[in-house]
Nucleic acid binder design. Sequence first.
DNA 1: TCCTATCAATCCACTACAGTATCGTATTTA
DNA 2: TAAATACGATACTGTAGTGGATTGATAGGA
Lengths: 202, 202
Amino acid sequence: MSSLPSTSVKRPGRVRDLSIDERVLAVAGQHLSARGYEALSLAAVASEAGTTRQALYRRWPGKASLAADALLAAAAAGPENHSADPLEDLTAELTDFQRGVSLPGRLSLVGTMLQDATAPEARARYQAKVVAPRRARLLAILRRAQNIGLIDPDADLEIAVTLCTGSWYATALAGRQPPPDWPARTGALVWRAVGGAQGLSP
Amino acid sequence: MSSLPSTSVKRPGRVRDLSIDERVLAVAGQHLSARGYEALSLAAVASEAGTTRQALYRRWPGKASLAADALLAAAAAGPENHSADPLEDLTAELTDFQRGVSLPGRLSLVGTMLQDATAPEARARYQAKVVAPRRARLLAILRRAQNIGLIDPDADLEIAVTLCTGSWYATALAGRQPPPDWPARTGALVWRAVGGAQGLSP
DNA sequence: TCCTATCAATCCACTACAGTATCGTATTTA
DNA sequence: TAAATACGATACTGTAGTGGATTGATAGGA
């Protein structure tokens, strides 16, 4: 989770107090969920976790990195997408995405990860641990649909994957609340975009 | 552009130095384009514009609002989308979007506008002046295609519009450089999503 | 076993920035 | 003349991030 020290290699010097990591991540996760990313104060987190800001900076390069790690500590795995109907899997995946991105502070963190000033290390971790798995699951769903023959064999899946989650971001950027049936409606559009049949039941 | 004073109404008190507005917007635009949003320092802008931070805060509620206004001052109108082929218009619109969002600092500003802490006034202006026109033009293109009968009459255009620009945001969030043919590929997918025919030339 | 290098923890101080609040002075309208 | 506003200047709070100094803990070598 944290910075440099790899757990198994024995190095000289005082060992890190792992309880600090746990306490800081717990407190940061609470603050992140309760008040959002911007309101996350490292001084407040350190104080409430019973340590100092320097202990935080020793473990994480900055606020964004800590927030990303705190987010991962509370992240759950995505849904199992192995039903008979890939479109159903797609909608389920988008519903899971909707649930996650709707939590307080999550969209703000997305915004942070789009900014140039965000530490590359934090961005890389976020992309690897949050974005990439989601993209992989979406791609797997579409690939299976391709193998079954439900969608075009030469469909542009690389772009199609970006349509799925991108729709949410564009809606939020427009200042609109995505409708409750967003997963189904977006799933239906993407499904058609890659050549899927419009009606499900023949 | 700036804050409260409506231009025509005569109010008591010293009149504002309009040259300050011009100089600040010019300098802010330069800094924004050269170094991005986060590196935009209000103190540096004020100093380089030959005034003080207070003059800035008198005109704009905060950094985000100033940045949004500086962006608008250099913004150009979108392309004319009145060709015979709506899909061509769609691709042209996405190409224009690609050009704008690729400028330095623009994606960072998008990220800022997704964050909770951004001043609502700045978000509202950004949405009204940048996001809404783009959405309106995209929607107009799709509506015309609907009227011509090229796409489904009951297509979900509200979601379809979000797919267009959202694809770019999702790609950037994943840490990937959108391909040069992104406008055409995204336009093709969206076109199909709303029921458009796949091949153009019969 | 003692010594030393290395690293962690804590405390303190510093810079830079966003944002807020006054204060005195200048300028304009009523 | 009085009220209202802009301007410049100064100062303040809170936060992110950096650096130094001291003390405590641990490894490996003499």
